[in-house]
């Protein structure tokens, strides 16, 4: 680790100890591909820091490496909550390059994208094991939430005793059903939102402060 990074870390730690009792919690944004994780990460980062986290796309597996935005300060009721946001690649059990060919991609590019996406999922699963303090689990509320991947991931998160906030994204879509997600995971609170439109973000920030503050 470089001297500058060390110095920066020391300063931010010292600053954090002045204003809060703990270091920023590292919050992983997990979920299946195309649930809107990067859109949400960008929305949070833009709202509170002015920067974006990464490019968004309707093509699955646009995010193929975990991206981090550090020291995002969220202010709620006069209290500051500082978190590091980690945007992760969509977790899936199968990656197939032919899926990308439909999006006007050359075969070589599609194969490379597929390989990178697989590496990204491996990385995201590894991070979940030891590198996150809490999870924001993003689901597309217009699709069936009761999938093997979702059940397994939420199970892993529960077994780690990590605080988890389930977000029902894309409520701006006609087929959206927040209740379907509530029924699938009744043991967790589900917050509806549209990260794209910015709908209900106030409640999302309230809950982030409540769960991870």
């Amino acid at each position: 680790m470089g001297l500058l990074t060390n110095l920066k870390d020391s300063i931010s730690r010292a600053a954090a100890s002045l204003f809060s009792e703990e270091d920023p919690k590292r919050i992983g944004i997990y979920g299946p591909p195309n649930a809107g994780k990067t859109t949400l990460a960008n929305r949070i980062a833009r709202d509170w820091t002015g920067d974006a986290v990464g490019p968004e796309s309707h093509v699955p597996h646009e995010t193929r490496r975990a991206r981090r935005k550090e020291n995002v300060e969220i202010e709620r009721d006069g209290k500051k909550v500082t978190i590091d946001i980690v945007d992760t690649p969509g977790v899936t059990t199968k990656v197939d390059y032919t899926e990308f060919l439909e999006h006007d991609m050359e075969k070589d590019d599609a194969v490379r994208r597929s390989r990178e996406a697989t590496e990204g999922v491996a990385e995201a699963m590894h991070w979940l094991r030891e590198d996150v303090d809490g999870v924001i689990y993003v689901l597309d509320s217009s699709t069936d939430p009761f999938t093997q991947v979702n059940t397994m991931l939420i199970g892993i998160i529960e077994s780690q005793d990590l605080p988890v906030l389930i977000l029902a994204n894309k409520i701006d879509l006609e087929d959206s059903s927040v209740q379907r997600i509530r029924n699938a995971y009744p043991q967790h609170e589900t917050i509806p939102l549209s990260a794209l439109e910015g709908d209900n973000m106030d409640e999302v920030y309230d809950k982030i402060a409540e769960y991870f503050g």
């Binding site: 977790v91 032919t98 597929s114 390989r115 697989t118 999922v121 991947v149």
Partner: peptide, 9 residues
């Protein structure tokens, strides 16, 4: 090449 199955656990 380009087609993978992942065991998440």
């Amino acid at each position: 090449p380009g087609q993978y199955e992942l065991n998440l656990m």
